[in-house]
Design a protein around this nucleic acid. Structure first.
Length: 1045
RNA sequence: GGGCGAUUAGCUCAGUCGGUUAGAGCGCCACGCUUACAACGUGGAUGUCGGUGGUUCGAAUCCGCCAUCGCCCACCA
């Protein structure tokens, strides 16, 4: 705390107390209903639906950024007079949340989900959800988010559930949802299918095994075995064929041709490598082609191979999937465990035995290997093949292995029954919406990924074998034959009569998988629009069973913008707020979420869900890695808020939100004992406790689990990158404090423009510009530009100049009212411009200001709004713009800077007033003369003379400026040597610049080809430099002369 | 393999339509608690704009190539 004797004079603290302000004003806003929005025909709506955070855990800085930007948009639009609605909510995040809770259950209680049972597990997850939802919403509130909390939604709540149900029903009815046997990515730990998007690839060390399959009854001249290569030898247990290319010679030729073409296009550096490949290809043709042709011929005549270990004959088949240029040229076909082989299997009608149980152990089909895990089976298969002498060779090889995002375990391709959404038409509607501009993606480069992804039109697998989520509303029954099928259909027809419009059905014909479905048999699926108990009872008594699966989380997320507004009900909200105005999100879910929202909105409501999608940067740590809880590099925004304040968090994030750069954010632990910062490294960020290198005491981290660690005080995780913003808030606070300390007798006195001084007109003119710049920056989502414009204006212009200059006038009774008037106006506008970014400090000042100066608009006699939240967004006043005043002011600033520079270099004691004079033309002299008092107050310098006739005093430091020479009289204080040194350096610099300019102007082609104004500008610039140089020479000579006397 | 983005001061980043003596904050140096603010003020030092070739009268800026880093998509028996 300050020990200043004058402390008591002010009731305002010198440091802004952000925590108190946050509590006070958030409550104030909530109580006044400032966040609430309802349809209002008198206003235009502006709507944002929050990207619902997952209830898996608390929010980190990435969420803080996302929500800060949304709140900035919402708050500004609200001030602009829109009926602004920000819908909050959270996402149940099916697989992610279930995985987290299951993992914890196992770790802490040693229980598996099966031991707990479905309802038991779901209850546990609800508990988890309640805890984290509360925490997340609390975090948002602490950040100042102005959501309409009355409308908080959860993707699993009844309103969302009804929307999901209606969507599913209608897609089912249109046959855009279907069930099929597909090879899916199987997570053997969570025992569920996961979509391609939930899979990541990791390079692991593996092997490439070459296996000989004996051929049955080869004719003379034919090979005795066929060799195949694989990285996964255990899958051979499920092989049902070996494929060879139908035209090996042609395929090789084509491969060679393609490679040659590639060599022609390739940069020189890559050529040798490619040439090498070509050579290998040629050799391969020479060595292997005859064999491949023979094998192809054998395939044609229906030759069989004997699958080792299983001793099962399997056919040799012709298929283009076997690439002669790869591996051995022949490929084993495991339809149930490889996506490509699956396609081959379908083409050839091969059996598709699965060898894998959902838990990753081998099934009976694997014969003697049943019950083993994949790893065990692999080792045994290799050993057994080796013992049989069938292992031709083994190579080391790097393998890109698919892993599940959630469980981090390897993915197994598994053939299962799954539900799909047919994407061709739906995807096209979403493509069209972006192509024709109904949805605008900002920055536009992200549209490409969106369009490419949708362009693939791959069907969307939506069923998940999980317990946490929307259960699929389909009851199914297998009909063994034609009779059973017609019975089932008759029942459905009858039920349809009894319960109209509640049910739709589909008949699923079994695919030819070779697993022997009965002829005429089928599966009948009945989809229910709602859980009608009697209907369900009737179905179940007829043998229909509800699918235990739940829907992919993104299925409900896709409906978010309209489900939160009450769809399928035609609510007033849906009519008024839909389509929403903007979606603010990060780029990693453009496809998963944004694309699906567009197609779902179009399908369900018939209109796009939002007009604009703004994609913001990602927050990375010091190593350039994304933040995540599991990595240990996540930062809780609350830590930042407690240390720096919510406004600093928000301003800091906005300040860093540029168009192309991700936000790199090195973070530190703050030692709770000595408050010093400890750098967070890859090593220490996963430790449960850390010993502070400064004070030696230990503190705990988010990983603390043991009681001994938990008992330690926790070290907050913060980043020094918020200091700039914290300091800025404090600066604003203190400037406001100064203003308010000088308003005791404030009256909104009438004021004519003649009474305005240069600095008044200057600050009004600058205010015009900054209002325009900030407004257009926000309009275009250029948050950093807006924040920087505000920072620079507030600090460098309002505080450093306007406030400084107004000080003397505030001491003067006569000049005080106008100064107060302009000062409060400027502060008022600045506060409103800043409010969307820094809501708390601006409200705090707004309220205090209202008590002293309720009426402060320059042309608005009404009192200020009762909250800055609902104050109007500033409108740039064109009449305030004054280029001449700004130019004059710039001259004033130059002189001031020059004089200060001399003072500093000459080490003039702070309280000593120096005298100085200016030589310049009469016009500028006239304009600058009234500024004389400001040189006294701001540079401790007295202007003794100004005009064309001004001469340099004998002992002085000169400053050469364009069309101006400034002489600081240093009689008695000068350090001649220092001044000479300074002059010499200045001279040298000037000579350098002059030489460069001369050079440029002597270049004939520059004179001829550059625009005349550019040439003129260079000429003027050279003249100025030459004048400055001459002045410097004179000054130096004079100094040297003075030194001698 | 395809695509996107980045590379500017010790650190983190701006840099508009190609024309400035290339900027800011932090850090560093000097001086200063001067009545809003030491979370501050005044002044200062600090750059081969990743490399290279080109377009141009003129390139941090536009184009080609190279290097490094990050991300996304696809695929590899």
């Amino acid at each position: 705390m300050s020990t200043s004797p004058n402390e008591n004079r002010s009731e305002l603290p010198k440091q802004y107390d952000h925590l108190a302000a946050q509590r006070r004003w958030y409550q104030f806003w909530e109580q006044r209903g400032c966040f609430s929005s309802d349809p209002n025909p008198a206003k235009r709506p502006y709507t944002i639906a929050i990207p619902p955070p997952n209830v898996t855990g608390a929010l980190h800085l990435g969420h803080a950024l996302n929500n800060t930007l949304q709140d900035i948009c919402i708050r500004r639009k609200r001030m602009q007079g829109f009926e602004a609605l920000w819908i909050p909510g959270t996402d149940h995040a099916g697989i992610a949340t279930q995985a987290v809770v299951e993992r914890r259950l196992l770790q802490e209680e040693g229980l598996s989900r099966h031991q707990l049972g479905r309802q038991g597990l779901v209850d546990r997850i609800w508990q988890w959800k309640n805890e984290y939802e509360a925490r997340i919403l609390g975090q948002l509130k602490q950040m100042g988010c102005s959501c309409d909390w009355r409308r908080t939604r959860f993707t699993l709540d009844p309103i969302c559930a009804r929307a999901v149900r209606h969507t599913f029903f209608s897609l089912f009815k249109e046959r855009l949802i279907y069930r099929g046997k597909r090879l899916v990515n199987w997570d053997t730990m969570l025992q569920t299918a996961v979509s391609d998007d939930e899979v990541f690839h990791e390079t692991v060390d593996g092997h490439f095994w070459y296996i000989n399959y004996p051929l049955i009854d080869p004719r003379p001249g034919e090979p005795a075995h066929v060799t195949v290569a694989t990285t996964r030898p255990e899958t051979m247990l499920g092989d049902t064929a070996v494929a060879v290319h139908p035209d090996p010679a042609g395929a090789l030729e084509r491969a060679e041709r393609d490679l040659r073409a590639k060599i022609d296009d390739a940069p020189a550096k890559e050529r040798p490598e490619l040439e090498d490949l070509l050579e290998q290809l040629r050799r391969r043709r020479d060595e292997m082609l005859p064999l491949l042709v023979k094998l192809r011929d054998m395939a044609r005549r229906g030759a069989m191979a004997l699958l080792p270990l299983q001793n099962r004959p399997i056919p040799l088949i012709e298929d283009i999937w076997a690439k002669p240029e790869l591996g051995t040229g022949c490929v084993k076909i495991t339809p149930a465990h490889d996506p490509n082989d699956y396609e081959v299997g379908k083409r050839h009608g091969l059996p598709m035995p699965s060898i894998l149980n959902p838990d990753g152990t081998l099934r009976d089909e694997a014969g003697p290997y049943r019950g083993k895990t994949i790893a065990e089976a692999r080792a045994q298969v290799v050993a057994d093949l080796e013992a049989l002498g069938l292992l031709a060779k083994v190579e080391d090889r790097k393998i890109e292995l698919a892993h599940s995002d959630r469980s981090k375990t390897p993915i197994e391709p598994l053939l299962t029954d799954q539900w799909f959404v047919k994407m061709d038409h739906l995807a096209q509607t979403a493509i069209d919406a972006v192509v024709d501009g109904r949805v605008k993606i900002i920055p536009s480069r992200y549209a490409k990924g969106y369009l490419d992804w949708l362009g693939e039109k791959r069907d969307w697998p939506i069923s998940r074998q999980l317990w946490w989520g929307h259960q699929i509303p389909v009851w199914s029954a297998a009909a063994a034959d034609r009779n059973a099928l017609s019975d089932a259909l008759a029942l459905l027809a009858e039920l349809d009569r009894r319960f109209p419009r509640l049910m739709k059905h589909q008949v699923e014909e079994p695919e030819r998988t070779g697993e022997g479905a009965a002829p005429g048999g089928a599966v009948v699926h009945a989809c229910l629009l709602e859980d009608q108990p009697e209907l369900i009872a009737a179905l179940e008594s007829a043998g229909f069973v509800r699918s235990p699966d739940v829907l992919d989380t993104w299925f409900s997320s896709a409906l978010w913008p309209h489900s939160t507004l009450g769809w399928p009900e035609q609510t007033p909200e849906l009519r008024y707020y839909y389509p929403t105005s903007a979606l603010v999100t990060s780029r990693d879910i453009i496809t998963l979420w944004v694309a699906r929202m567009v197609l779902a909105g179009l399908h369900n409501v018939g209109e796009v869900p939002f007009a604009e999608v703004y994609i913001h940067p990602k927050i990375l740590d010091a190593y350039g890695e994304g933040m995540s809880k599991s990595k240990g590099n996540g930062v809780d925004p609350i830590d930042v808020i407690e240390k720096f304040g919510a406004d600093a968090l928000r301003f800091g994030l906005a300040y860093l939100t540029t168009e192309t750069q991700d936000i790199r954010m090195p973070v530190e632990f703050e030692c709770p004992h000595c408050e010093k910062l400890v750098e967070q490294t890859r090593e220490n960020r996963i430790l449960p406790r850390i010993k502070c290198p400064h004070c030696g005491k230990a503190f705990s981290t988010q990983w603390a689990k043991k009681p001994a660690d938990v008992a330690l005080p926790r070290g907050a995780v913060v980043s020094e990158r918020f200091e700039l913003a914290r300091n800025f808030c404090n600066k604003l606070w203190n400037a406001s404090r100064f203003v308010m300390m000088n308003l005791e007798d404030y009256r909104p006195a009438a004021m004519s423009s003649e009474e305005l001084r240069v600095e008044d007109r200057w600050v009004l003119s600058r205010l015009f510009t900054v209002t325009e710049v900030v407004s257009s920056a926000f309009d275009e989502y250029r948050f950093a530009d807006a924040a920087r414009a505000l920072y620079d204006f507030a600090w460098d212009e309002f505080c450093s100049f306007y406030v400084e200059m107004v000080k003397t006038r505030l001491q003067n009774e006569a000049e005080r009212p106008v100064a107060q008037r302009v000062l409060t106006h400027a502060l008022d506008v600045l506060l409103r411009l800043l409010h969307p970014v820094a809501p708390f400090v601006t409200e705090e000042v707004w309220q205090r200001l209202a008590a002293i100066a309720p009426v402060r608009g320059l042309d608005d006699p009404r009192p200020a709004a009762e909250s800055i939240m609902i104050a109007p967004w500033p409108v740039a006043r064109k009449e305030d713009r004054d280029a001449q005043i700004e130019a004059l002011f710039a001259r004033f600033q130059e002189v001031l800077r020059g004089v200060r520079d001399i003072r500093a270099r000459q080490n003039v004691p702070p309280r000593t007033t120096v005298r100085f004079s200016i030589r310049t033309d009469a016009e500028l002299a006239e304009a600058l003369r009234p500024m004389a008092p400001y040189f006294v107050s701001m540079a401790g310098a007295e202007l003794t003379e100004i005009g064309p006739q001004t001469t340099a005093p004998p002992l002085c430091a000169g400053i050469a400026l364009p069309a101006m020479e400034v002489f600081v009289n240093l009689a008695g204080v000068i350090d001649v040597e220092a001044e000479c040194a300074r002059k010499r350096k200045e001279l040298a610099d000037l000579e350098k610049f002059i030489a460069a300019k001369r050079n440029k102007l002597q270049n004939q082609s520059f004179i001829e080809r550059a625009p005349a104004e550019v040439v003129q500008k260079e000429r003027d610039s050279l003249n100025e430099l030459a004048a400055a140089r001459d002045a410097a020479v004179r000054a130096l000579e004079q100094l040297i002369a003075a030194a001698k006397t």
